[in-house]
């Protein structure tokens, strides 16, 4: 699946990284707790979250995540979008709720990926 596919499946808006939409992604995770993302995520390349502060971008950066998707209609500030843009992250925004967004992507072949023990 490409990031462009995610945009279509989630009826999402692209907030930055339009030129990187061709990138292939195989695994994703969904969480509002960055502590848990840092603790359990291993090789996921997409993060779905309803948390909107700059630490979402920092967490993605540390974990080598390449696409952030804000859900539940959450919109990050321009400062957060700029921070993501500087790090070559694609930022999407969808009005779908977490359960639904994860379910749609999973049903279309995006896996959960490995969990760090």
């Amino acid at each position: 699946m490409t990031i462009a596919d995610i945009k279509n499946y989630l009826d999402a808006e692209v907030l930055c990284g339009e030129e990187l939409m061709y990138k292939e992604v195989h695994t994703a995770c969904g969480s509002d707790m960055m502590s848990d993302v840092l603790a359990y995520v291993k090789d996921q390349s997409v993060l779905l979250t309803g948390l909107c502060n700059p630490q979402v971008v920092r967490t993605a950066e540390m974990m080598d995540i390449i696409c952030l998707c804000f859900i539940r209609g959450k919109r990050p500030s321009q400062e957060v979008i700029d921070l993501a843009s500087e790090r070559d992250l694609v930022v999407l925004a969808s009005s779908k709720r977490m359960f639904e967004a994860c379910g749609i992507l999973y049903a279309n072949g995006l896996a959960g990926g490995a969990v760090l023990e």
Partner: peptide, 13 residues
């Protein structure tokens, strides 16, 4: 916690 941290995973992580 509202900022996405404080889950008690810092030091173990």
């Amino acid at each position: 916690r509202a900022l996405g941290f404080g889950a008690g995973m810092g030091l173990p992580n």
